[in-house]
Every structure is written in structure tokens, then in C-alpha cells.
Amino acid sequence: MTYIIVGGSAGLGRAIAKKFASEKNDLIIISSDLRDTKALASDLEIRYGVNVVPLQMSLSKNPITFKKVDEALENLSQLSGLILPIGFNHPNDVPGIDDKSFSELVNTNFTSVCLYINHFLPILKKLPNTTIIGFGSIAAIRGRSRNAVYAAVKRALESYFESLRHFVANSHLTVQFYIIGYIDTNLSFGADMTLFKPAQVDRLADTVFNNRLRDFGTTFYPKYWKIIKILLPIVPWSVFKKFKK
């Protein structure tokens, strides 16, 4: 079985790639820097004896071409899923951000993800026991001044996954969307984690693998973010506007 992992060279993507390879699945790993992707591909091939194709692709600009991915798939076992642990944030992501950075944030976190889904949807719908897994962010629960575009497009992505799940209901294709809290990757390294201890990325990867064919729709990781999702929107504006950090 082959899985395509978009954004698979570091952080959550790397942990997912490791877990799926350790379970003897072939992989296509896509990231923007081939040096990282190649290193990971070699590591997984040597450790687990699976086939891993590393590909370099910038998702911040559209349109994207799938020729290399399609060619790689021809030489691997049957496609079983598309996993999209891609996320890109920007230190100056506040309303009024420059156009270039705005487009990069939208393209990387939303448009390219949707284009990937659209490209592989027909084939995944036809095959048995396939899955598409997307990842959102707790930043999208309620918009704040920081991560403005990122949060907006992650909320849009959640909606697209809801539509997708509805579209493929009663087929063999499972659609899942994880809304992720803080996890111990390089992105959270150095972040203020006074209130929330980052979850272990390897545990999340295990969860993603073990539940890859469960039709639960959208879920939170760690689970306690579900409670915050309920509570945060009802925090009075007079209080919420003070949450600047």
C-alpha cells in the first residue's frame, strides 16, 4: 500500500511518515526542500525496507503540477491514502499583511491542499479502503490578531473537508480532519507553553495510523481542545480582546 504525505519532511509529517513506513507502507513524501525529504526517504528505506520516493514541490505558488507524483505512483504499490500534514505560518501574519505573504499562506495551507485532494479524489474513490486525512489548527477556533490568515484558511479547510466527507459518504473512502493543538515539533519549540503542555508528535502519528479507516469526521488532538472549542467562542468580547499573546 502507498500513501502520499504532503509536507512530510519535518515535524508532524515526518512522524507520520515514520509510523506509516514502520507499518510496511510505501510512501511518496513531498516537501519544499529535497535535502530534508531525501534524508528522510533514505532513513525510512534503510530502517524499514519500504520504498519511499522523495519529491520537491513548492506549494506556496499555484498552479501545481502532479506529473512527478503520478509517475512515482506508477512504480509503487496501490495508492491507499493522501495525508496532508502541511502547515505554514508567518511571523507577520496579522490583518494587513503584504500580498505576497498573504498568497503564500493561502496557497500553502488551503489552495494546494484542496488541489491535491481534487487530483487524487477520483482514483481514491475507486479503490477499496482508502483515506484522505487533513489537519487544521486550534488557531482557527476564534480569530485573533496573530495568525490571522493562517487561522482563516484552516477554518476554510475544515469546511472543505466537511464537504468532502459529505460528498464521498457511503463510499470506501474515509475522510478525516484533525484539529491540532500544541505538539512538540520545531514549530512549538520556544513558544510560550505555560498553559498547555505540547502533545507528543509520535503519539499523534500513532493515532493517525491506527484510526486511518475510522469514519469519525473531525476530531481534536489532544482531546481537551474540544472543550476549549466550546468555551472560547462564548468568552465575552471585552475579555477576549485582551488575549493578545
Binding site: S9, A10, G11, R14, D33, R35, D36, T185, N186, F189, G190
Partner: peptide, 10 residues
């Protein structure tokens, strides 16, 4: 100060 790079770009 402490950095834990996980990619060449870091």
C-alpha cells in the same frame, strides 16, 4: 539561547 533544527533551512 537554544535551537533544535529539524531541517537544513534552520
Amino acid at each position: 539561547q537554544h535551537q533544535r533544527p529539524d531541517r537544513f533551512r534552520n
